[in-house]
């Protein structure tokens, strides 16, 4: 896990469900197959409705061409990752190049999956952060001091400490964590 994450923001609304993150249609690609796994990146956030993909304008595709996104930081509102248990969701975001999702809250299976698989950081903030940041803003996030800085606007925001999950993220994934715990 990188404690210091810098890059461009991609902004979404509330209740982004796993069907929006990776539509069911693409789930038959095999994530363990090198050739096929890049399609999860290509279709990451492909199910977000027009007008809601990349606020404030809402007409930006997360991955505009190829398999990687220009945006490594996702900013969202409440209940990010609700819906199905598909681990393909955090996997797809990570494949597309996302390193962190900062949201007001997460659905628990998504949260657990992104941690246990060591894909990308789920970071909560008390701030209505998706109204404070615009798609394309340059951000700097420091997980040691739990701060998010919007370099474009110059404003700074608090993040909630990662708490229990920090140990798992730092270990790498749940397998490495379990080993450390003597499991």
């Amino acid at each position: 896990m990188n404690s210091l994450i810098k890059g461009k923001a991609f902004v979404l609304g509330d209740n982004i469900d796993t069907d929006q993150i990776i539509p069911a249609k693409y789930l038959s690609y095999d994530p363990s197959n090198e050739e096929e796994k890049k399609y999860f990146g290509k279709f990451a956030l492909f199910g977000v409705p027009e007008g809601e993909s990349g606020y404030p304008g809402g007409d930006i595709r997360y991955v505009s061409e190829g398999y990687k996104s220009d945006y490594n930081i996702i900013i969202a509102g409440e209940n990010f990752g609700c819906g199905s248990s598909r681990e393909h969701a955090p996997f797809a975001l990570a494949e597309a190049g996302a390193e962190i999702v900062v949201a007001q809250s997460f659905a628990r299976i998504y949260f657990r999956n992104s941690v246990n698989g060591g894909y990308l950081v789920p970071s909560e903030t008390p701030v209505k952060i998706n109204e404070e940041v615009a798609t394309g803003d340059e951000l700097e996030i420091d997980l040691e001091i739990n701060k998010l800085k919007n370099l474009t606007s110059g404003k700074e925001y608090d993040l909630n400490p990662l708490g229990d999950i920090k140990a798992i993220m730092e270990a790498g994934d749940v397998f490495k964590y379990a080993k450390q715990m003597g499991e």
Partner: peptide
């Protein structure tokens, strides 16, 4: 409860979870 693939793989091998 529902879990993801990594969680499930861990349980598949160990019969355990946190």
């Amino acid at each position: 409860t529902g879990i993801g693939n990594t969680d499930a793989a861990f349980t598949m091998g160990t019969g355990r979870t946190w």
